[in-house]
Amino acid sequence: MSLLRVSDLRVRYGAIQAVRGISFQVEEGECVTILGANGAGKSSTLRAVAGLHRPSGGSVTFGSQVVTGEPAHRIARSGISLVPEGRQVFGTLTIRENLELGGYVQSASANGEALERVLGIFPAFRQRLGALAGTLSGGEQQMLALGRALMTRPRLLMMDEPSLGLAPIVANQIFGILTEIVGSGIAVLLVEQNVHRALQVASRGYVLELGEVVLEGTAASLLADDHVRLAYLGHGMGEAE
């Protein structure tokens, strides 16, 4: 049984239907990516799964629980962590407080252990635990947001555009860490504009266009697909040959 099973999910903002009945699964320990252009419905899908926006139809099942339409804080407690687009760290709070809030639902002792574990992944924060998160650079904020999401040992980590607005070298670091996370057995659902990077980390992918899944398959098959190459990788059949 899949870890996350989304079927016929629909999301609308007023009159606009952003997601038009999509279905996909994420297996335990697997990294899956959702590809698509701006406005294809990728973020809306993640937001609906995380409970930030109530879906207008369809169902979301996590493990054995149906979580469709549950409020975000309940979904977070059930083991899904979303690193939202644009980081969204708590700028007026310190790094330590940000991380501790990531483990808000667990006991103080568990939080202490989790903090050590996360600082093991992001050693640069150890010296600066008292610094305000708002003073960090974009890349550091992205790492903090990721660390914050890892505080609870989520069973499913969702990341929305982690490399957005970051220098390539910083984005590479983030993806390096992401690969480690996948290796540690946490399932990851990744939305990313950089299709190349995404398909390197992920084992499978779905392509969204105008709120519908138009293509799905293994990373390798998607990388080889003409449509994907033409539309998202910036080169056509001729160039590749």
């Binding site: 995380a50 409970g51 930030l52 409020p71 975000a72 804080h73 977070a76 407690r77 962590s81 979303l82 939202p84 969204q88 760290v89 708590f90 700028g91 007026t92 709070l93 809030l101 990531g102 808000y104 639902v105 914050r148 999401a149 609870t152």
Partner: peptide
Amino acid sequence: ANREAAALMGIN
């Protein structure tokens, strides 16, 4: 500081 992010941390 950020209501949505707070909800994502499991805060009601």
